[in-house]
Amino acid sequence: MSAPNMEHPLGPCPRRSGDPVRRRRGLGKHFAIARLAARQRLEERAVLWGRVLFYFIILLVFARLWEALLGAKPGSAPPDDASLGQRPSHYIWYLAITEWIMLSQPLLHLDIEADIRAGAVGHSLSRPVSYVAGKLAEAWGEVAVRLVLLGASGLIFARLLGAEWPEPSALPLAALGGVLASMVMTLALAAIGLSALWVTDSTSVYLLWQKACFVLGGLMLPLSIYPPWLRSIAEWSPFAALLFGPAELVLGAPPERVLGCMLRLACWGALFALMLVGLERRASRIVTVHGG
């Protein structure tokens, strides 16, 4: 038993078993949460297959759209200017990657907002795992399931729609970029969810984020075909790093673009993580002072 002091005049109560709890540091418990979340998501088959179907419809519609606009079949010979975004095949792969990243995202902001409304954030503080870290682990478990399922589906759909195989190294690099981007995007969604503590309804913040992803991230159109002034603005935003960056890798970007993409993702990831730590501290203060 520790010596009595002013703060704890009685000293900590000894454990009956006499066996103090060994507190492990590290990510073991977070991996366990992620694993369980992945299993829970696999149980929700209808939701998963719904996303796969939506993914196919999006790719089909846009593949036909670009085919009509560019006047060429996906498998046909490239036109004179074969740079990114000038061949239907490019568009299919590009869109397959951007949509793969977007559709792999869970509705984490809504989940966190629901917890805030229900007072569950406060209750989670009585457990030896950080609320935000637990939620992120859960979200990444879900993201992992979707990345695998939608990734495999994307490959099949792109080929079904006539896209030629990209260079051998391009797909793994784009996949790596996509996985990193998904993780970073989840950090941003957690921050959006926590914003509900201040704005009450996080949907408005999420809609801003989503529309910015569409426009500045190049969800449907590669930034390479944007006007130069808009492209330069977009490239300074996190949205381009999250969507355009990994998606352009599928078309065989030079090594400096690959490195640039990974570096940008790492920087935005670090920035979002820092922001999330700050938000969690503020949120914890609000919850513990004003109630969950």
Binding site: E7, C13, H123
Partner: peptide, 30 residues
């Protein structure tokens, strides 16, 4: 430990709940 009091003090199993929440979490069930 999930709410700070406006005033007063408490000791739960020898811990001040709102200051040693993580330590206390291992020793309480809810």
């Amino acid at each position: 430990g999930i709410l700070h009091p406006s005033s007063g003090s408490a000791s739960v199993l020898g811990h001040t709940p709102w200051r040693e929440r993580r330590e206390l979490a291992y020793r309480i069930g809810t």
